[in-house]
């Protein structure tokens, strides 16, 4: 019985983390048709900024420990914004006419550059910023202890998902964005400033990536290579759910998270295959992913 609880809660926690990581990727792809290989680097930058700032706050500053959560989120927003603006304005906006494939390669080159840039900026020593994680203590659920920080992450992740959905479906900007997603050419013809929409989306996407990193930072040891590790995971989630769909990312994250949790508890030997297994199965049955739209074939 405990196992049953554990599978559910572990699955929820992992799924909420997966969604955080994947949300920015799917938003950028949905609007801009860029499969952003550098997404993991934004995650890493967010994590590094948060870990170093919060680490500094606790070691050199004797303030209220709860303020560190504000720092965590604040620096992720700033980092994501800065990096997003620099990359969009400095590079990507000149590339929008290139094909989808070349964009993947451009972002791959970005990934290589950012990987070393983070190393130059933050060094290779792992950052171990545990305070925000340890501060919240733990709760006992069904005879098993869980970290409150992880449980809180589920709520935060759900809130971000809801926010994205509301923006996309209940606001004017969202309507315009959906028009761009649906048919870019017609949207331009109707007077939509697609360049502005692209810039905004990209910056929003990088900020989401950085936020995911910052929220994860307190529970891990932030070290080189964490960015590369999350890319494929995020891809898997987004592909399972359907590229470019927020609902898809939520369902994809839940599916992958729950399956993985099941595997860890019941058949740890197959854990390594689970994610790719789910991805292959879903694609075999529904090539466009669970929530992906089939594109009309051009004649």
């Amino acid at each position: 019985m405990t196992t049953f609880y554990a599978i559910f809660i572990d699955g929820m926690i992992y799924a909420s983390w997966l969604f955080l990581v994947a949300a920015g990727l799917t938003v950028i792809y949905g609007v801009m048709r860029i499969l952003n290989m550098a997404h993991g680097s934004f995650y890493a930058i967010g994590a590094y900024c948060a870990a170093s700032l919060v680490g500094w706050y606790f070691s050199d500053f004797d303030g209220n420990p709860y303020l560190s959560y504000l720092l965590l989120i604040g620096c992720a927003l700033v980092a994501g914004l800065v990096v997003g603006v620099v990359i969009e304005q400095g590079l990507l906006r000149f590339m929008y006419k290139r094909n989808e494939l070349l964009m993947i390669i451009i972002t791959y080159a970005l990934l290589l550059i950012l990987e070393d840039a983070t190393k130059l900026a933050f060094g290779v020593d792992p950052y171990f910023t545990y305070q925000p994680y340890a501060l919240l203590g733990r709760s006992d659920i069904g005879g098993l202890a869980f970290a409150n920080y992880d449980l809180l992450l589920v709520v935060v992740s759900a809130a971000i998902g809801l926010f994205c959905w509301l923006v996309l479906n209940r606001t004017h900007i969202g309507k315009v964005l959906r028009a761009v997603i649906h048919d870019r050419e017609v949207a331009v013809a109707m007077g939509v400033n697609v360049r502005l929409m692209f810039a905004g989306t990209f910056i929003f996407g990088t900020t989401l990536g950085a936020l995911a990193g910052a929220l994860t930072a307190p529970s891990i040891s932030v070290s080189p290579g964490i960015g590369v590790e999350v890319i494929v995971l995020a891809f898997a989630v987004v592909v399972v759910g359907g590229l470019g769909s927020i609902e898809g990312a939520i369902v994809g994250a839940l599916l992958v998270g729950m399956t993985r949790s099941l595997a860890v508890h019941l058949a740890p030997q197959i854990e390594l295959f689970v994610i790719y297994g789910v991805m292959s199965l879903v694609l075999a049955v529904r090539p466009q992913g669970l929530f992906g739209r089939t594109l009309a074939r051009k004649i």
Binding site: T2, Y14, T216
Partner: peptide
Amino acid sequence: ATEQFPKIFQGQYGAEISALAI
């Protein structure tokens, strides 16, 4: 009792920790 083999560099061990605790 149990043997867990998470992917290297996974970083998140929530489910494994539960399985170990159980």
